[in-house]
């Protein structure tokens, strides 16, 4: 394993200063459950790590006008937050099936997103919740929709010197239902495929539909074409079957040790279909 220096700045300013001083040979680290593993496997070779754990500006979970989470919010806290369980159950469910308790006790929502694994469990719920990420760097602050955040496996729109500071989710509308589903080889697994759905129903008709599928493309996907088909319609079995088929057309998964591409396609469609059904049940 490569040896690295480890810095623990107390503020973002200090963190930027360190990053500048280290000439980009450093890497930010949140909970470390992914970065440390990759260093141990020899897949990453940073000279230094800059830990974000002591920066209080990155913490805090608020639920006044929508949901606002500091990027260093632990999955543990998301999993246990009663307001999230009530208003954003898809997110709470994703948090509760991500890895295992020991990992959730240190892994952060920001870290999960910045790793940009196509299978990241936090991504599909945040996609359907239309989350906005606040990004900050030495040059200032900007806001990015989560849809525009991912660029490819392990790649995001972040500059090397930038940090995600906050994730915000708009206030939940009345009549909204949402769900997150995941399938793995065993109970504890990286997703073969995962999916989230958010539905707003008025008088039996779907007014709003947001769909996302993970682990089936280089980045977590929004399924906009299919959302357009669902919106304005009554959600009935025929429509759901059509959705499942369309998902198969819209995803482009790979084959790896966990699954073949073909199975991912099939099951991704099924998960999206079932997520819509579950969201619909909860929208009532």
């Amino acid at each position: 394993m490569k040896k690295f220096d480890y810095y623990q700045p107390e503020s973002l300013k200090e963190a930027y200063g360190l990053m500048e001083k280290l000439n980009g040979e450093a890497r930010f680290i949140a909970g470390g459950t992914d970065v440390i593993v990759r260093i141990k496997q020899g897949a990453l070779h940073p000279d230094a790590l800059i830990s974000l754990r002591r920066i209080s500006a990155l913490k805090g979970l608020g639920n006044e006008d929508g949901l606002s989470m500091g990027s260093m919010t632990l999955f543990r806290d998301i999993e246990r937050d009663p307001a999230i369980a009530r208003d954003y159950p898809a997110l709470g469910e994703a948090a509760s099936v991500l890895a295992n308790p020991q990992v959730r006790n240190v892994a952060t929502i920001g870290g999960n997103l910045c790793n940009a694994a196509p299978s990241a469990d936090a991504a599909p719920p945040l996609m359907v919740l239309e989350a906005t990420l606040t990004i900050e760097g030495p040059g200032g602050q900007r806001e990015v929709s989560i849809e525009d955040f991912f660029r490819g496996p392990g790649e995001t729109c972040l500059e090397h010197t930038e940090v995600v500071t906050r994730i915000t989710i708009p206030k939940k509308r009345k009549g909204t239902g949402m769900a997150f589903l995941k399938i793995g080889r065993v109970a504890q697994d990286i997703a073969i495929a995962n999916a989230a759905a958010l539905i707003v129903v008025e008088n039996g008709v779907c007014r709003k539909c947001r769909l996302s599928a993970g682990a089936v493309a280089p980045v977590p996907l929004r399924l906009k074409r299919i959302e357009g088909i669902v919106e304005g319609r009554k959600i009935e079995p025929d429509l759901l079957d059509r959705v499942a088929e369309m998902v198969q057309e819209d995803v482009s998964p790979i084959t790896d040790v966990r699954s073949t591409a073909q199975y991912r396609k099939t099951v991704s469609g099924i998960l999206v279909k079932r997520a819509i059904k579950e969201a619909l049940d909860r929208a009532g």
Partner: peptide, 8 residues
């Protein structure tokens, strides 16, 4: 390589 964990 997946072996069972308790929830399985």
């Amino acid at each position: 390589y997946k072996i069972f964990s308790a929830p399985d």
